[in-house]
């Protein structure tokens, strides 16, 4: 028996109402991501990459088509159910990190547990383990705003993966970083993927395509190719 894909887009469309009328951000998107897969998504600005990511992380709903997460139709799922999936199964990493600058590194990672029922000690242990994984074990008490860009992004990754995830979605995670920091961040993502977390990486940087085993390219809101890399 075949297991359901982790993430499945079937004829998905996303339209936005603007002053000039309705604009299609995504049209006829069909693809699926399997558990443990590492896929990169590329495309020029306005191609619909970020919209795709918002749909994949259940932050937005499709205007048409079917979106499934582990076989469950999440396009029509009530907000409480979508929140529960975001809480327990999906992590996000952003280009601009979105850390709480005045709080410590550890507090930022613990923030991932803010809406979970995890006991405090368990959350603390998981947060420390996530920091170790991203090479920031010695910086737990540092104030977040004092970190370098690469360190901030690794804190953001640690925060995302402090809970066991099914899918980690990363939106231009190396976009603001120098080459060395970018390599460290990509190393973290690959390590997580090796441990079984599916990664969906959105990027402008063509050089990052090689890190994944699958490449999706978008243009004008449509998927123009879906290629498995050798």
């Amino acid at each position: 028996m075949n297991a359901a894909p982790l993430l499945e887009f079937r004829a998905v469309e996303k339209r936005y109402a603007t002053a000039a009328g309705e604009v299609a951000a995504l049209s006829g998107v069909d693809f699926s991501i399997q558990a443990g897969e590492f896929a990169t998504v590329t495309g020029p600005s306005g191609s619909g990459k970020s919209t795709l990511l918002n749909l994949a992380t259940l932050l937005d709903r499709p205007s048409a088509g079917v979106l499934r997460f582990e076989g469950q139709d999440v396009g029509t799922l009530p907000e409480s159910g979508r929140s529960r999936l975001r809480k327990h199964s999906i992590g996000m990493v952003f280009q601009s990190y979105h850390l709480l600058p005045e709080r410590s590194v550890l507090d930022n990672v613990l923030f991932r547990f803010r809406y979970m029922d995890t006991p405090a000690e368990e959350a603390r242990a998981a947060a420390r383990q996530a920091l170790e994984l991203t090479g920031l074990g010695g910086m737990a008490q540092r104030t977040a705003r004092l970190l370098s860009g690469g360190e901030m992004q690794r804190v953001a990754i640690a925060r995302a993966v402090a809970v066991p995830l099914r899918l980690l979605a990363a939106d231009e995670p190396t976009g603001n970083l120098d080459a060395e920091s970018a390599a460290q961040v990509m190393g973290c993502l690959k390590e997580l993927n090796r441990a079984g977390t599916a990664v969906l990486l959105v990027t402008h940087n063509e050089a990052l395509i090689a890190h994944g085993r699958r490449h999706l390219a978008f243009r004008h809101g449509r998927m123009v190719h879906d290629r498995v890399l050798g």
């Binding site: 992380t57 975001r86 809480k87 979105h98 803010r114």
Partner: peptide, 16 residues
């Protein structure tokens, strides 16, 4: 606004 988005991405519901 960003923090609100972040909280929602961590599973906060509108009522939270």
């Amino acid at each position: 606004v960003a923090e609100i988005g972040l909280r929602r991405s961590f599973g906060a519901e509108p009522r939270d």
